[in-house]
C-alpha cells in the first residue's frame, strides 16, 4: 500500500506554513492564494500548530474577534496529530476519520516534512484501487483467451 512519503513526493517539497504571530487575515489570504484549506503553523521551523478554514469559521467572528486583529496563535489548533512518512493510507484515513481531522502534518524525527489532506489520502487510495482492478482485468483476459 502507498505510503505518506509517496504522496509527499508527488506533491513536491513545499510546505505551506505561516508564523504564529501573523494575523488571521494573512492566513486566509495565503490559503486563498494557494487554494488550500489549512496551513501548518511553524516557529523556528518547528511545528507549533495548524490553522484551517474550520478554525477561522468557528473562532473569529463567532467569538467577537476580527481577522485583522487576531493572530494565528490565538485560534490555531495546538494539539496536532501528526503522521510519520512510512504510514500507509489506511492508517492516515483511520486517524482522520476517528479524530475528525481533514489535515495531517507529516513529521520525522521532529522535522516537518509536509501536510497531507483527506483529499490526498482518498485520491491515493482510489488510484491504487483503479490500478489493482486494471491488473485484475488484464489477468482475467489472459486467463480467458
Amino acid at each position: 500500500m502507498r505510503t505518506v512519503s509517496a504522496i509527499l513526493s508527488r506533491k513536491g517539497p513545499q510546505v505551506l506554513a505561516i508564523g504564529p504571530d501573523a494575523t488571521v487575515l494573512d492566513a486566509i489570504r495565503k490559503m486563498a492564494e494557494y487554494n488550500v484549506g489549512a496551513l501548518v503553523v511553524t516557529a523556528q521551523e518547528r511545528l507549533v500548530g495548524i490553522i484551517s478554514e474550520r478554525d477561522y469559521a468557528r473562532k473569529v467572528i463567532l467569538r467577537g474577534r476580527s481577522s485583522a486583529h487576531t493572530t494565528v496563535r490565538e485560534i490555531m489548533t495546538q494539539e496536532v496529530v501528526t503522521a510519520e512518512p512510512e504510514w500507509d493510507m489506511k492508517r492516515c484515513m483511520r486517524v482522520m476519520t476517528d479524530r475528525r481531522f481533514r489535515h495531517l502534518p507529516v513529521q520525522s524525527q521532529g522535522r516537518l516534512l509536509g501536510l497531507v489532506s483527506m483529499g490526498d489520502v482518498v485520491k491515493a487510495i482510489i488510484d491504487e484501487q483503479t490500478f489493482i482492478i486494471q491488473q485484475l482485468e488484464q489477468y482475467m483476459q489472459v486467463q480467458v483467451h
Partner: peptide
Amino acid sequence: RDVAAAVV
C-alpha cells in the same frame, strides 16, 4: 469523510 469511510 462519510463517503470515504464507506468506500475505504
